[in-house]
């Protein structure tokens, strides 16, 4: 038996000998399902590529993203400037490559702020129940009833434009969805025998929530996070476009479109290229999220 076949047999064994083997085996089976959905695989590829581009941006960029040269302003796409140049003669390709860092950075920052918070709040509300649950749900109701972009606009107006304020504004409107999901999952598993068993063994409420309930909410949360990422990208770009997110010299995609807008009729590439970048990034996360949902959360499709 070759090594690959042996590994496969080990992964799909009916009677896994260790916890690790069972976990890896389940992951392998999920991957087999995921692989059949070519759109989801494409989404995964785009998302990974985006992450790679953001990490290796200085290596991939052909020019300095902020180097101005008025002699070559508004050049069409060509051999030296692959996607053309903007109104200050900056290389659009290099700016988009560097801009991926800002966009992905904002997405990661929002998710890191929001997902753990939502998870803990939701699990606690679902597990504790009673008035605590009612108050938390009412608060999420209020935040979810807000128009996201408008609330973000008002926050940025008060705090001043900038990437950090944009992230805070988006995070404030994003967390309730995670809390809701975690709460729904918690309610579904709260009455399970294994929870009762753990409680009888003397596990504290904190231990039950963090060690037994929260891990089981993770898969629906991951699906939601992935689908949400495209929304975060679009909101961040919208803020940048309105001049309220990242401020102009920085190569944020939305801000690039906002300056390129003035030349849209003659020099279409200045605004269109970052637009395509936003579209591809957001589509990638959407496809990946759809695929993950089919694998991790079959009841929702």
């Amino acid at each position: 038996m070759s090594r690959a076949a042996a590994l496969r047999a080990w992964l799909i064994a009916d009677t896994p000998l260790s916890r690790r083997q069972a976990r890896l085996g389940r992951l392998y089976l999920q991957w087999l399902t995921f692989r059949h959905n070519w759109l989801a695989v494409a989404g995964l590829a785009v998302s990974l590529l985006l992450a790679l581009i953001a990490i290796a941006a200085p290596l991939l960029a052909t020019h300095d993203p902020s180097a101005q040269n008025l002699d070559i302003r508004l050049q069409p796409p060509g051999a030296t400037h692959w996607l053309g140049t903007d109104e200050l003669g900056r290389d659009i390709y290099s700016r988009i490559v560097h801009g991926s860092r800002i966009t992905l950075g904002m997405v990661v920052a929002v998710v890191v702020l929001v997902a753990p918070f939502g998870l803990v709040v939701g699990c606690a509300a679902g597990y504790v129940g009673g008035w605590f649950d009612r108050i938390v749900m009412r608060v999420t109701d209020i935040f979810m009833a807000f128009p996201r972009l408008i609330l973000a606009l008002a926050f940025v107006a008060a705090l001043g434009p900038g990437i950090e304020n944009g992230v805070i504004a988006i995070a404030l409107t994003a967390w309730p969805a995670y809390a809701r999901i975690a709460r729904a999952e918690t309610l579904a598993i709260r009455g399970s025998d294994f929870i009762a068993a753990a409680r009888l063994q003397g596990a504290s409420a904190l231990r039950l929530i963090f060690a037994h309930v929260a891990p089981l909410c993770l898969s629906s949360l991951i699906v939601r996070v992935t689908l949400d990422m495209s929304g975060i990208i679009l909101t961040a770009a919208g803020l940048g476009f309105l001049g309220l997110g990242a401020v102009p010299p920085s190569p944020e995609w939305g801000a690039m479109i906002s300056t390129g807008r003035r030349f849209i009729l003659e020099q279409w590439w200045v605004a269109t290229m970052p637009g395509i970048a936003i579209f591809v990034a957001s589509l990638g996360f959407n496809l990946l999220g759809d695929g993950l949902r089919d694998v991790l959360d079959p009841k929702q499709t």
Binding site: G238, F241, R261, T272, G275
Partner: peptide, 14 residues
Amino acid sequence: LIGHSVPIFVLGLV
């Protein structure tokens, strides 16, 4: 799916 992924201001500009 495209409708969920394309920024509204890009579509307007195009």
